[in-house]
């Protein structure tokens, strides 16, 4: 059937069908990367606020004013704090001695409890039976040290995160 034999609506339908079959074109392979390289992604609000505050504070005049204000506040604080400490030295010494006494007492209690447990549970007997003296003690300590260092290095590699660069999220899918 030629085009002339078709009704206008049939010709319209045919045209629409042909238009919908036109191929779609793809840009070059590097297109998304080129676009993404020029896109400014929003930063988390805390980072934005920090950067703004930093930029604001680093403006030379403001930095001078802020530095001066900081020094003035520090001097004023010392002006109040030093006489107060001098006037209250006996009380401060008493409180410090009290607190440090509690602290050392707690450490002593803990050490005694640990020693008591080691003796009563048989751990002390076990360690003594290993007869770790001289070369053996050195080897045991060296093995323990290397083991701890190895664990430290392993944890560092496991827990490290990339810094100063964006992580390509699509790689994690």
């Amino acid at each position: 059937m030629t085009d002339k034999q078709l009704s206008p609506s049939q010709r319209d339908e045919m045209l629409v069908r042909e238009l919908s079959r036109l191929p779609s074109f793809a840009p070059s392979r590097g297109f998304p990367a080129n676009v993404m390289a020029r896109v400014r992604r929003p930063q988390p609000k805390a980072v934005v606020l920090y950067r703004r505050a930093k930029a604001w504070a680093l403006e030379p005049r403001r930095a001078l004013v802020l530095g001066g204000a900081y020094a003035a506040v520090a001097v004023a604080a010392l002006w109040v704090a030093v006489p107060w400490v001098v006037a209250n030295t006996p009380a401060i010494r008493f409180v410090t001695a009290q607190v440090s006494g509690w602290f050392f007492e707690a450490i002593q209690d803990g050490a005694l409890a640990a020693a008591g447990w080691a003796v009563s549970s048989g751990v002390a007997e076990f360690v003594r039976s290993l007869s770790l003296t001289g070369d053996r003690l050195f080897i045991a300590l060296a093995t323990l040290t290397v083991g701890y260092a190895g664990c430290g290095v392993g944890l560092h590699y496991l827990l490290r995160t990339p810094r100063g660069q964006d992580v390509a999220l699509q790689h994690s899918f």
């Binding site: 992604r41 929003p42 390509a168 699509q170």
Partner: peptide, 11 residues
């Protein structure tokens, strides 16, 4: 919200 994957999805 800053999700790079969302930008790539729109692209």
């Amino acid at each position: 919200a800053g999700k790079e994957a969302a930008y790539r999805e729109l692209l």
